[in-house]
């Protein structure tokens, strides 16, 4: 396939995943704002959402104060925010249009319909009363497109590039959420492991849709080390770093098989895999969780760049 087309499906999937992750963060922020009393702690929560999505600076340039509706409207639809959910879904749809010949009708139509319905829902400012509906529609779009991919696409290069995009974005998201939460909530990594408000941990798990799974695996008891292990090293949880890594590795293996040869990204992945598989959560904490996560984020970016270069995404 064309390098430009590979780039298109990769970014289409990344943008959809990112839109969905942003929606989940807003959901958590909103949930928390409703359940926690003071104005200050609410603001704090929204600030943390902005930090996690990497949009705090952009927000501050446009607005002088942090209020819930202003933040979620900024994140969802603000015209001057190129990172808004609407802009991302539009980007995903534009990329889908570019690579339309590589996609099945089902994938194109679900992407296009998702964009059309969101554009309509986000045509006017979102209020607290319809925020839920909007967020559900964003999640639904991501779910439907993934389902259409899964159900209708040949398991070929197009499919593999799409999945690689999804899991690189997801790994990046999980690593950032984890990092922001530890970093923001704890003045130094030395505090990690001390007793903390359960609500904070629950919030963290909710941000990656892992609260139910974690409770189920741990019979309802929570501890920070267990949560970190769950989000980094659990092989079953579909948003853990290890899980995302395994997916990327298997889709890259699919490409090597189809093309009959490996590229430099395969070796890079093997190196990353070796460390990931041999590391225990104790070692991660000894090294410093923040440092470890920073390293992960750098690696994820590097993997994305090497894949893009190896497969000639651009000239």
């Amino acid at each position: 396939m064309l390098g430009r087309a590979a780039n298109g499906v990769y970014w289409m999937s990344r943008y959809l995943e990112r839109a969905e992750n942003t929606a989940r963060l807003i959901d958590v922020g909103f949930h928390l704002a409703l359940t926690r009393g003071s104005r200050r702690s609410q603001d704090e929560e929204w600030r943390s959402v902005l930090t996690t999505t990497g949009q705090l600076e952009a927000y501050n340039e446009l607005h002088s104060e942090i209020t819930g509706p202003q933040v979620f409207n900024f994140l969802l639809r603000e015209k001057d925010n190129p990172g808004s959910v609407l802009a991302m879904v539009e980007n995903a749809r534009t990329n889908a249009r570019v690579v339309r010949t590589s996609l099945t009708n089902a994938v194109w139509e679900t992407t296009n319909e998702g964009w059309m319905s969101l554009r309509e829902l986000l045509a006017r400012p979102v209020r607290e009363t319809n925020l839920g509906e909007v967020l559900m529609q964003i999640r639904r779009t991501g779910t439907l497109v993934r389902g259409a991919l899964e159900g209708t696409m040949l398991r070929n290069e197009v499919f593999n590039f799409s999945r690689i995009g999804t899991f690189i974005e997801r790994a990046d998201n999980t690593a950032r959420i984890l990092d922001v939460k530890y970093y923001v909530l704890l003045p130094s990594t030395a505090w990690v492991g001390s007793s903390l408000d359960n609500v904070q941990w629950d919030t963290l798990l909710r941000s990656v849709a892992g609260n139910r799974a974690y409770s189920w695996l741990n019979a309802g008891s929570m501890d920070p080390r267990g949560i970190a292990k769950f989000l980094i090293l659990d092989g079953q949880f579909p948003r853990s770093l290890l899980f995302c890594y395994e997916k990327i590795r298997s889709n890259m293996a699919g490409l090597a098989k189809e093309y009959g040869h490996e590229v430099s990204a395969h070796q890079l992945l093997r190196d990353v895999g070796a460390t990931l598989h041999q590391t225990t959560i104790e070692e991660i904490f000894d090294q410093g969780l923040h440092e470890y996560l920073q390293d992960c984020i750098t690696k994820i970016i590097e993997i994305g760049n090497v894949i893009a270069a190896d497969y000639r995404f651009t000239e």
Binding site: M1, R4, R312, E315
Partner: peptide
């Protein structure tokens, strides 16, 4: 799509060895 042909843009193409070639992933 219906012809099973590649959809290319100018930026995908370049002249090499007397042929017009498209940049593919391989």
């Amino acid at each position: 799509d219906q012809m099973g042909a590649e959809l290319v843009e100018g930026s995908d193409l370049r002249v090499m060895d007397g042929r017009v070639c498209m940049r593919t992933t391989t």
